[in-house]
Design a protein around this nucleic acid. Sequence first.
DNA 1: GTTAGCACTCCATCGTCTTGAGTGCCAAAA
DNA 2: TTTTGGCACTCAAGACGATGGAGTGCTAAC
Lengths: 346, 346
Amino acid sequence: MANYLTERSQKILEAIIEEYIATAQPVGSKALTLNLGIKLSPASVRNVMAELEELGYLTSPHTSAGRIPTEKGYRFYVDSLLRISDLDVRQKDQIELKYRQQGLQMADMLREASRTLSTVCHYTGLVMVPRLKTTIFRHIEFVKLSPRQVLAVFVTQSGLVQNKLIDVDEDLHPRDLEKITNYLNKSMTGLSIQEVRARIIAEMAEEKALFDHLLRRAFVLSSAALVDEATGDVIIEGTSHFLEQPEFADLPHMKRIVQTFEQKSILVDLLDRGLEAKGVQVIIGSETAYSELADCSLITAAYSGKRGTLGTLGVIGPYRMPYSTIIPIVDYTANLISRLLDTDND
Amino acid sequence: MANYLTERSQKILEAIIEEYIATAQPVGSKALTLNLGIKLSPASVRNVMAELEELGYLTSPHTSAGRIPTEKGYRFYVDSLLRISDLDVRQKDQIELKYRQQGLQMADMLREASRTLSTVCHYTGLVMVPRLKTTIFRHIEFVKLSPRQVLAVFVTQSGLVQNKLIDVDEDLHPRDLEKITNYLNKSMTGLSIQEVRARIIAEMAEEKALFDHLLRRAFVLSSAALVDEATGDVIIEGTSHFLEQPEFADLPHMKRIVQTFEQKSILVDLLDRGLEAKGVQVIIGSETAYSELADCSLITAAYSGKRGTLGTLGVIGPYRMPYSTIIPIVDYTANLISRLLDTDND
DNA sequence: GTTAGCACTCCATCGTCTTGAGTGCCAAAA
DNA sequence: TTTTGGCACTCAAGACGATGGAGTGCTAAC
């Protein structure tokens, strides 16, 4: 037996996968020859199916059922068989419409992206919020909340607002805080956070000699404010779509998945993987390396601002998923968000 | 037949409800006399049960099953029978522990509250974020994002950060923005938002005469920044607990509920109802007035800061719920949050 | 290499039967 | 008058078995 697939085998594999994606039912040889474009007898198809099963692309739940794709089958399908169609204009409009409203700031936009992905794809939408370190410094502000607590409010170039509570060990005068604020805003605006951090460290070293107490505190404060939280944040929308999937009908299973979402950390990890990749990434089942998501697939794409990649967004669903329609949607959304972040706020 | 309940009837009703809450199974007359503290024969109990059914406190799924409480039954139970025990020390500790960490700002604290409610109660936790209008002005900042866009960042007394994108029709110079910022911070700090708004309107009227262009813009900007979004925000944690409830085993039903959560608006409405109320509120089933939540109960309590009620928090679950343990937890959490908001940040 | 035919497998479905928990009612007991 | 034991009745749930049908693998013919 050949260990590569003839064109005919590929055609049949493709037909099976697409039929299974559409119906969630095991596909039999007869159905293939009748409704789908296979011009062979059921017997011949059966031979090919047996071969595909041997090679690990298909499996059958029991002897008298049809075949269903394995993970390997999906992977081959996504890598080799899938023809990604362009998004039709209507869908583009549907997506773009959501961002038309005025006065959408970045956080709202990302949430909207997640929601739109979810409703358009009928799966769960995911958007990773940009990490602090990938953003550009625009403005910082220190607000004194109590004698020992200062709230740092930090605005990035793209209008994302992050804030952080800082415990201080001396009672700073509001006037001093103002001075610090002014100094930082004057000298740091437009730099990336990494540059800002580097600069702070450099100037602090220098500062040792000069010993300007106030300036010193400015640096301490701002470096505290700009510490990157290790854990990124994910915006999840449309968890309820999972409840539509027949493969997750049993509650304990379902529950494990929803809990995984609530924890977020696993999703952060998975989305992080798409950060360096170009274009759309597909992670199928066990490729996630998390048993909780063994029968889920993620489709992700990175979005970027003026200065490179900011984060990733995508969709998660069962691994029986209409990849050919979802992939372009995710791709288009990522590009759209990138475009919006680029033209806005300059 | 009496239309009030004898003490014996009440005892039996109570026993049935508590048994049903514990097991989710219809309760029969035999079980009551055997395991629970009813010292009567099954036959007598049956008489009472028939009576309770006639009065609308109980119902039976079919003739040969036991009885289950109706909504009216639960309502009577909550109003008249329930003895709310104090929270035991261990649980208090378990809750309080979560807030021990340093540097928790308000938003984090509210999220933590929702999460803790969820894990301690094994239901879904809800926390309503304070409305802008109930908070006290501490600091405002305008950051120019583009020639026509200004980001207003607004910090409340308790350290909650809200931000809003404002479209402006003239290109403001950063120096002007700074002046505006300074002016507002000097004159408005410590006032409630309502006072701030009143003051702005008053000064704007006066301003017409004086016509200081800059000041005028300050007022326009800040009133735009302080417009209260009509829709409050709710922090929902632990949706997955819903999947544990046997009464929501069928997926379409479950899905409707989860979708209701995702929409949030209904939850906002329900939580709003608890704003003026003192102490813990229980909303059972159809009392929610939303058919989607016809078999859910909410237990809510208001939390407050230095100057009155800020918002509400609570728990939502099936209406078969151990009210006697949940109510004190919600109560305690609301008080705890109030205390933390009060002593912090002064 | 392809196809028709055929025996075989096994799940899903349906009706039947049984079981048992629980009820309502009545008459006897307290 | 209230309580209780007894008894016939009801009905869901589970077990069992038969049936049907979709699908397979294999073999022999085309």
